[in-house]
């Protein structure tokens, strides 16, 4: 899926999380917890029952007082990658980019790259494929060697029929009581409820569970810059609804205004809550997105 030099570059990246999560296993992510680690933090007075291995014998020899050495503990973080597998991500609906990738293929590559970065950081990575509901789930995996499972899972993912339902997906996800952490959502966000009821009412389901969001919105070329004019019967890829529209310049302009307004509302939500928002088109080379755009937006470091 990836070239070797690209993989090497990925190993130097890490997913940015502005919050510090409490992990379970030692890993590469700093925590506020003191414990077993390499980096010295400070001393504290010895209390009976403390592990004598951490007693600072040098201090005890010089001063006669017993102090315990404390170290910074690095733990792993839970990274949940939500992959939109609705019909709107299908190859024939949004148009393909210049690299010949559909939105779904593009989204899978992003998910794979982010999963690799997280695994390289010894974080726990799970991938949730969803449309109207959660379709498939890759349970949390850890360690770089698990990338094979991740890729196999992504290879196995296919767009499924049904209307995108972020709210239902997130509700069923949180009912599973997952570990809070970083939630990466890779989608076009074409959800009627999201547009109609507002973004906070949907995404707050995750934020209330102390998830930090990293939103990656992917648009096809024909969605961002429609290049057709004339009489059309538009058919919704997810619902099958149709609209008879005579596409004129003015109507195109109004369409773009609505689309831009939706993107702005998504961006504003993220900025307000300190989340990462990255907008990309399928025409943007995937490597540029990961190595440049996501670093610029602060999603990767």
């Amino acid at each position: 899926m990836f070239r070797s030099d690209f993989i090497k570059k990925l190993e130097y990246l890490s997913l940015v999380s502005r919050r510090v999560f409490r992990g379970e296993l030692l890993a590469e992510r700093k925590t506020h917890q003191s414990g077993w680690g390499i980096e010295f933090a400070d001393h504290r007075e010895y209390f009976p029952g403390d592990d004598l291995r951490h007693l600072d014998w040098n201090v005890f020899a010089r001063l006669g007082h017993r102090f315990i050495k404390r170290f910074e503990e690095k733990q792993d973080a839970a990274v949940s990658i939500f992959l939109d597998a609705s019909q709107s991500m299908q190859p024939d609906s949004g148009g393909k980019g210049t690299n010949g990738l559909s939105k779904f293929d593009y989204a899978k590559q992003i998910a794979a790259a982010l999963a690799y970065i997280a695994l390289a950081q010894l974080d726990r990575v799970s991938i949730i494929s969803f449309a109207g509901k959660i379709e498939e789930v890759l349970p949390p995996v850890r360690g770089k060697q698990q990338i094979v499972n991740v890729l196999r899972f992504l290879e196995h993912c296919r767009p499924v029929p049904g209307e995108t339902d972020f709210a239902g997906t997130f509700r069923s996800f949180v009912r599973r009581r997952p570990r809070s952490g970083l939630a990466v959502i890779v989608s076009d966000f074409f959800d009627r409820r999201l547009v109609q009821t507002g973004i906070p009412s949907v995404l707050d389901t995750l934020t209330f569970r102390r998830f930090e969001l990293n939103i990656i919105q992917i648009l096809g070329e024909t969605e961002a810059e429609p290049d057709f004019r004339g009489d059309y019967r538009f058919i919704d890829a997810e619902t099958g609804e149709d609209r008879n529209i005579t596409v004129t310049e003015n109507r195109l302009r109004r369409y773009k205004e609505k689309m831009s307004g939706f993107q702005d509302s998504l961006k504003n939500y993220c900025r307000k809550n300190g989340f990462i928002y990255t907008l990309s088109r399928t025409s943007v080379p995937f490597e540029d997105l990961v190595l440049k755009m996501m670093r610029q937006t602060g999603g990767l470091r």
């Binding site: 019909q87 609906s93 547009v195 059309y232 919704d236 609209r243 008879n244 005579t246």
Partner: peptide, 22 residues
Amino acid sequence: LRPRRREKTLPAVLFWDGIAGE
């Protein structure tokens, strides 16, 4: 007489709602 409209599948038509149609 009206010419037959070309059909086009879009990821979503929700952004075309409210823009004058037929």
